Amino acid sequence: EGEAHRVLFGFVPETKEELQVMPGNIVFVLKKGNDNWATVMFNGQKGLVPCNYLEPVELR
């Protein structure tokens, strides 16, 4: 579910809505907001990550 994206930079959450991710993680974007935040799914957890920390990736 969602579009696959690769994480470019590590992100440490500052609020409980945000999700910690590391460079190279593959996350699935469920929704992109107008505020430059994306709702993503990673390892069964859902949370917010900055859009500019993500790049689309083709999964084969």
Rank of each mutant, 00 (worst) to 15 (best):
V57W: 04
V57G: 03
E17G: 13
K32D: 00
K32H: 13
Y53W: 04
P23V: 05
N34Y: 07
F28V: 09
F42C: 10
E17N: 10
E14Y: 08
R6V: 09
G10M: 11
N25I: 02
V40R: 02
H5E: 04
P56Y: 01
M22I: 09
V7H: 00
G44R: 07
G24M: 01
V21L: 11
G33V: 11
V12R: 13
M22K: 14
G24K: 02
V40D: 05
E17H: 10
L54W: 01
K31F: 05
N34F: 12
V7T: 03
K46I: 12
E18A: 06
M22E: 14
I26N: 02
N25P: 03
R6Y: 08
A4C: 06
V21H: 01
E55A: 10
T15E: 06
P23D: 00
T15V: 07
T15D: 12
V29E: 00
R60F: 13
C51Q: 06
V40M: 04
Q45M: 12
N36P: 06
D35I: 01
R6E: 05
N25A: 10
K31G: 11
L19C: 04
F9N: 14
N25G: 02
F11V: 05
N36H: 09
F28W: 14
E14P: 08
A4L: 09
H5C: 04
T39A: 05
A38K: 02
C51W: 15
V12D: 10
G24N: 05
D35N: 13
G2T: 05
G2R: 05
Q20M: 11
R60W: 12
N34P: 15
E3Y: 08
L8Q: 06
E1N: 10
V49L: 11
E3W: 09
N25H: 10
P56H: 03
V12C: 12
L59S: 14
G44V: 04
A4P: 14
A38W: 09
R6K: 11
N34C: 11
Q20A: 14
E3T: 12
N52H: 11
R60H: 15
H5K: 00
L54E: 00
M41R: 12
Q20E: 13
N43S: 06
V57Q: 06
W37E: 05
V29M: 09
K31T: 10
N52G: 08
V29G: 02
L30Q: 10
F9L: 12
L8Y: 00
V27S: 02
G44I: 00
K16F: 08
H5G: 01
G2I: 03
V40I: 08
V12E: 13
K31P: 05
R60K: 15
F11A: 07
E1G: 10
K32Q: 08
L19H: 00
M41A: 14
M22Q: 14
V57N: 06
P56E: 04
K32T: 06
P23Y: 01
L59R: 15
E1S: 10
V12W: 11
E17L: 09
C51F: 11
T39P: 02
D35H: 07
V27E: 05
F42M: 09
I26G: 04
G33E: 12
F9G: 10
A38V: 03
Q20S: 12
F42Y: 13
K31A: 13
G10S: 14
I26L: 09
K31C: 10
I26Y: 03
Q45I: 05
E17T: 10
V7P: 00
N52Q: 13
F28T: 15
L59M: 13
F9T: 15
V27M: 03
G10I: 04
T15Q: 05
G2F: 07
P13T: 04
G44T: 05
L48F: 15
E3H: 09
E14L: 10
R60G: 15
V7A: 01
Y53A: 10
V21E: 00
P13N: 02
K16Y: 06
G44Y: 01
E1R: 11
V27N: 00
F42A: 08
A4I: 07
M41L: 13
N43A: 08
K16E: 13
I26S: 03
N25Q: 15
M22W: 12
Q20F: 10
Q20V: 07
Y53S: 06
P13G: 10
D35M: 03
